[in-house]
Every structure is written in structure tokens, then in C-alpha cells.
Amino acid sequence: MSFARMSVSAAAIIAVSATAAAARDQIRIVGSSTVFPFATAVAEQFGKSTEFPTPVVESTGSGGGLKLFCAGVGAEHPDITNASRRVKMKEVKTCAENGVDFTEVVAGYDGIVVANADSGPDYELSRAQIWEALAANGPKPTTWDEIDPALPAEEIEVLGPPPTSGTRDAFEELVMEKGCEEAGGEDCEEAGMEIREDGAFVEAGENDNLIVSKLEANDRALGIFGFSFLDQNQDAIKGAVIDGVEPTFDNIASGEYPVSRSMFFYIKHAHVGVIPGVIEYAQEFVSANGPDGYLPELGLIPVGDDLMASNKDAVENLPALTVDNY
């Protein structure tokens, strides 16, 4: 059964709500592969501890999730989407065009790591050196020691996420743009942060666990993914030091690690009170990343007290994120 498109009339809203309730009683969540393990943990706990069915969580990538989320209102569209970067203005506009009102919640913090197998060489890199290695408009070296003789004499092979990934967006902004500036590159906010496509950088899909597996099989390669995947696989892989700082839980939480970011989830207003348990799930996620929650044990960096209060208020009152207040 499918939804009719929402209209401004109360009658249409009632009709849509009735159809939604009949169509689906299980929460559907899409989005970031980095947020996926945290959302899955919350969904499983939510299913065990409440009367609601366990939500379905899909790893579609941040961009893919927001595309699905903003496509419309109705049982065929997801209720919540996760993102490892903030929604973009063009996505807010697409949501508005399709009648999708939504609220933003900060899920927690994460670091982006550059890692390799434990059996491989140790790397201490600056963002400028990473830019030199990966920039489409940079020097395009073949081996790391061409950038700096102190670096390993290994062929540059970096496995990373595709353009639809929030991790890719954040890596380009936090590493490629900043590295471009530090290295004296040109047009750093646009062409300067583009990643080369000649084989040195390999798009490895939205599945960060797959990148980890490939690193274990090839100790000459490096991989780019969220800190939690490093944290959960410390027996097999290790993170590179970036700008003199190790990628640790404490360094990311303090902001000392230079490649840190916020992660989010977004709640669709029209599905609240229609698809059962949407608000209750959001409340569970927020509390799970508190000081006594279970998500920090999985590698999610918790929010502070002020942001925790803001998150609770957002879930309770559902302030809309719009083009005007973005």
C-alpha cells in the first residue's frame, strides 16, 4: 500500500496518516555506514526493551539515505536517516520541495582515520602529505617516500568511500581542503580538494567493514573510515598519526585529533505518531550516547551535557530544520 502525497488540508493529512498506519508498523531507518552499527545497536535494544518491533536499519551511505528520506512522505519512504556529515542545503531544499519537514539530532562525534594492517609499516602523516598523495591536481607521486624520504617506500594505494558517502564529504573538507591549503595548492575549496582517479585511490563502497577486511588481506594498502571501525578492530589494524596526533577516543573527544566530525540523524515529522515508536526510538538513541549509555563502548564519542539537553529538547519538540534557519 502506498501513501498519497501530503497536502495542506487536514482531511488529506488524516487520510495519509490512516494509510501509513495500515501500511507499516515497523520503523525504517537508512543512511550512513558509519552510523549504521550504532543505529543497529539502538534498534536491537529498542526491540528488546519496548513493545515496538525492532526497527529495520539499512546502510545506504549518507547521501543515499538523505536522497531516500527527502523523496517524500509515506510508508514507502524511510522515517529516519543517519548521516556522518550534516545535511546539505540542496538536500534541505529537496526535502522542502517534497513536503518533508524534519528535525536534526546530533548522534555523537567521530574521527576519520587513515589506517592499515598491523603487519604493515607505521605512518605519521600530515594533512598536506595526504593531499599530495591523493590530490587530482597535485603532484601525483607513485610511492609515499616520493613525498617525504622519511615515509615508507610503499606504493600509494588508499581504499576509501565513494562520493555518496558522508565520510568522503568530511574527508575532502577536513583533510583534502586543509591539506591543499597547507601544501600551497590552488582552488582548495573546489578543484584543489578533488581526489585522483588513476588507481592510487580506490573506491571501496559504503561498507567500512569491507575496507577493514581488505586491509587485513593487503598490508601495503591504507584505508579511510570512521574511528569506530578502528576501535572495534584494534587486533588487526592500526591508525596513522595525523598532524602529530594519534586517533584515540580521548583525542577525538577533546577535539585535539584534527580529523573529527559530528554525526547526525534526522526525524521525519509526518511519520511521528503514524509509524509507531519513532519518537521512542529517537529518545533511546539520545540516552544511549549519554554518560551511562552503551554507544560509547562501541566507539561513538558522546556529546556533552549542553548538547545532550539540546538533543532531548529536539526530540521532544521537533523543531524543523528549514532553508531559512539552516
Rank of each mutant, 00 (worst) to 15 (best):
R220N: 15
V323C: 05
E172M: 14
S2V: 13
T81G: 00
K67A: 15
N207C: 02
E58C: 01
G277T: 07
F227Q: 06
A320I: 12
E177W: 04
N311Q: 06
T40W: 03
P319D: 11
F102T: 07
G179T: 10
F225P: 03
T81A: 11
A135W: 02
E91C: 00
N82A: 14
G111I: 09
S260M: 13
E189S: 15
F264C: 00
A200F: 02
E97D: 15
T322Y: 05
A10D: 09
G120L: 09
A135I: 02
V245T: 05
D208V: 07
E182R: 05
I147T: 03
D324W: 08
A22H: 09
P149T: 10
G192S: 08
V158C: 07
K67H: 14
V113E: 10
T322H: 09
P276F: 05
D219S: 13
E197P: 00
G205Y: 02
A170D: 12
T60L: 12
R86E: 14
P247G: 01
G223P: 02
L210I: 06
V323Y: 09
G74D: 10
Y257N: 05
Q234H: 02
D305V: 13
A117L: 07
R220I: 01
E58R: 06
N116P: 04
V259F: 06
P139R: 05
G244E: 05
S33F: 11
D118K: 15
R168E: 15
D313M: 13
A314R: 06
V56Q: 11
T81I: 00
K214E: 14
I156E: 11
V113C: 12
G239C: 01
R86V: 11
A135K: 00
K178A: 12
P291G: 15
P296F: 08
K88E: 15
N289R: 03
A221W: 06
A115G: 03
R196K: 04
L159G: 10
E51A: 15
E51H: 13
A96L: 07
A236V: 13
S7N: 13
A236G: 03
I252E: 07
F36L: 09
P139C: 06
K90M: 09
P163Q: 10
D324R: 10
S260W: 12
K268L: 12
A200V: 10
E297P: 00
V105S: 01
I130G: 03
V30P: 04
M193Y: 04
T54C: 01
G199I: 08
P149V: 12
V42Y: 07
V241S: 09
V158N: 07
I237H: 00
D243I: 04
N289E: 04
E51G: 13
S260Y: 13
V315E: 05
W131F: 11
K88A: 15
T142D: 15
S126I: 02
I252N: 04
C70Q: 01
D250K: 07
E181S: 02
M176R: 02
A4N: 14
A115D: 08
A309Y: 06
L134M: 14
E124G: 10
Q45D: 14
C70V: 04
A10Q: 11
